[in-house]
Design a protein around this nucleic acid. Structure first.
Lengths: 228, 228
DNA sequence: CGCCGAGTTGACCATGTTCAAGGTGGGTGG
DNA sequence: CCACCCACCTTGAACATGGTCAACTCGGCG
């Protein structure tokens, strides 16, 4: 477990909970506040299940969350990973089409959907953030589709690493919150292929692997070339 | 070319243009109307280019449109096909991240983005439809990702056929507006694999192929089994 | 009638999967 | 504190699925 990451995020989380700017009803003194309840989840705990009533949607305060779908034969496809500040589990319909699970220990805020009147006008800020979320989420999904389409294993892994390098801010060291299996299910590959590809990249001096959950980017250009 | 389809859609289009309920500013007598201009495109004509300024977004009146991306080495990934009533080319950013192209001869309405004030309150209906579009689009993309993930060729083709059977209303005969290449680039396969898979399905009596652009569904259950 | 682009089919090949056998390191209990 | 353990990861060899290349067919149109 990445204890450093978790620790760092926890100190952040205490501030983030109170500073959360998503729904400011508390500040506005409204009756039926839609400000959410804070929840903690340990790694691999289910946050909501595919098919369940989608009464709540969530925002990540700290840690990493995955949304995924299980197929009949046990295969799993991870749709997305969500980090601090991102909304997940917001459904157009009445039920969740994906499961939500904690990748690492994490803290989330749950918002009651019915308390959020999307078009009341007074909730303009909410509308704005939700539309923004939906657009962002759409873009993310489209890029994911592109990634899963006609691309080789090395390309996929390179894109994945660059994505997390960008997200984590640090261009040189990427701390992966998720297991090889998670990466595989996200990229539509097997753990063996992920492992082999990373090893090959290390042999090619593109990256170094100080530990299994840490990747050091050595040759950014080479990675970017791979990602087309 | 599917001349029957085109003809049918054209008679539809004349009505649809005037009946278009998307933005009703004309009826409301507003000054800077955001009601759009109608455009026709012949098959394979580009509607907007990846990277261009995303000043307009579009709604399909008739025909089929594809949004896609080209990779450096010539590979193409089709993100989505859009049919009558669907919005496409609505970007969160300033430029298009995908190209839009006519699959068949088609008619679209173009709306100026800057004329659509998303949160003015008076444009509540616009907000509602755009949020609805964004959510729908998000769902579509997620399902596409799931489709492209760890699934075999037969599964992919089965899901594709069922999707179009649903969309076209007719559960028995599906008229495909797009070429094998389009299907391949949408499913992340090659034309050869599409061809082989369809042939195999015909041999297995799941479908019949009266012509290249027509698929008759013979064993719906078998197809649904394939699609998991 | 013959051309041409789109689609089909076949043979071979490459990439990633599967199956199986080690490695490794963080955590626990003696 | 060390040894063990177990889950996670890595590596290897055989295999399968889909890609590539090439030949051929079909159907629409001049």
């Amino acid at each position: 477990m990445p204890s450093q990451i978790t620790a760092a995020n926890h100190s952040l989380s205490e501030r983030a909970i109170w500073a959360d700017a998503f729904l400011k009803e508390e500040a506005n003194g409204r009756k039926h506040s839609s400000a959410g309840a804070v929840h903690h989840f340990v790694a691999d705990r289910e946050i909501f299940a595919e098919g369940a009533n989608a009464d709540y949607f969530y925002k990540v305060i700290s840690g990493v969350v995955r949304t995924c779908k299980f197929l009949a034969d046990g295969r799993r496809q991870i749709d997305a990973f969500h980090i601090a500040g991102e909304i997940f589990g917001f459904e157009p319909g009445a039920t969740y089409r994906l499961s939500g699970e904690a990748v690492s220990d994490c803290t989330v805020v749950a918002y009651r959907k019915k308390h959020v009147d999307l078009f009341s006008g007074t909730d303009a800020m909410v509308s704005r953030e939700l539309l923004s979320f939906a657009m962002h989420s759409m873009t993310r999904s489209q890029e994911h589709s592109l990634l899963l389409g006609r691309r080789g294993a090395a390309e996929k892994v390179a894109i994945f690493l660059l994505d997390w390098a960008k997200r984590s801010g640090d261009r040189k060291i990427v701390n992966l919150a998720m297991s090889r299996q998670d990466i595989a299910d996200y990229l539509g590959l097997t753990i063996e292929t992920i492992s082999r590809t990373l090893s090959q990249m290390e042999r090619d001096r593109m990256i170094a692997l100080p530990s299994t959950r840490q990747v050091q980017v050595r040759d950014l250009d080479a990675l970017e070339d791979l990602s087309c």
